[in-house]
Design a protein around this nucleic acid. Structure first.
Lengths: 129, 129
DNA sequence: CTTGACCCTATAGTGGCTTCAGGGTGCATA
DNA sequence: TATGCACCCTGAAGCCACTATAGGGTCAAG
């Protein structure tokens, strides 16, 4: 499998795959005579794992931790659980922050009566006073 | 007013104020004999405006646009309205994305029965198959 | 033998700051 | 007068997770 195939199979940009390799998240694959990277099923599995973790909002450091944990099958699942729980809390905090923003923006837009800047409620709300 | 005072009054880090100046968001203030920046009320107003805009999630480019618009009092408020509306849409999209994440994470955590990694539902959900 | 899709490396850029290294200023206190 | 300390200065690098760009090499088909 060449890097373009892996890219299509995982929906990851080619540059991102090379970036993950440089970051040590994916082991360096073997090369063809023409210096092309050659991947196998293990690489595909690992990259899929990384992508799903990223899609769930984990940072690359958290992904690293999850990869390490997933390798040690006899270990307790507690650390994984804690990472996921922390991530859930972080997502919930972000949602709350954004909802507060949403309310503020909606309220500003509600007051705008499309006149001139001089009487614009939005600018007024931003300006100090 | 020295940069530290402005920092305290607006809740902006000193380094960030200098960064805004370098970015052209705040005009370069005059200096004391000892080369300290000296700010006045106009600077305070402008920085407050920037911070409130940033708190509402506008990018620095959007803040630049808002600052330009706010200077032209006779102009129509339509452009401001459009910026705010765009920002609201963007916030709403982010909320939806995060809520989808929240559901996924919560569902994963719900399935975790705190055993070993080998039987961990979270790792399982991340691994391909 | 050329075209075009694909691959390679190395480096810089993105946004919005933050941190660091290495200094200078200014006021109060011993 | 010396010294300590809080504050200020500049310029450059670092952060995250990529993305983009420049400048080239490989390989199969027509």
């Amino acid at each position: 499998m060449k890097i373009g195939d892996l890219s299509r199979l995982t929906g990851t940009r080619v540059e991102t795959i090379r970036f993950y390799e440089k970051e040590g998240l994916i082991p360096a694959p073997s090369r063809t005579g023409g210096n092309y990277r050659v991947y196998d099923q293990a690489h595909l599995n690992r990259l899929s794992f990384i992508r799903r973790s990223r899609d769930l909002g984990f940072t690359l450091d958290q992904v690293r931790a999850l990869l390490d944990l997933s390798d040690d099958h006899s270990r307790s699942c507690g650390a994984v659980d804690e990472l996921a729980r922390e991530q859930l809390r972080s997502v919930e905090r972000k949602i709350e922050d954004l909802q507060a923003l949403q309310r503020e923006l909606a309220s500003l837009l509600n007051q705008c009566s499309q006149g001139t800047i001089a009487e614009c409620r939005i600018i007024e709300a931003l300006a100090p006073g």
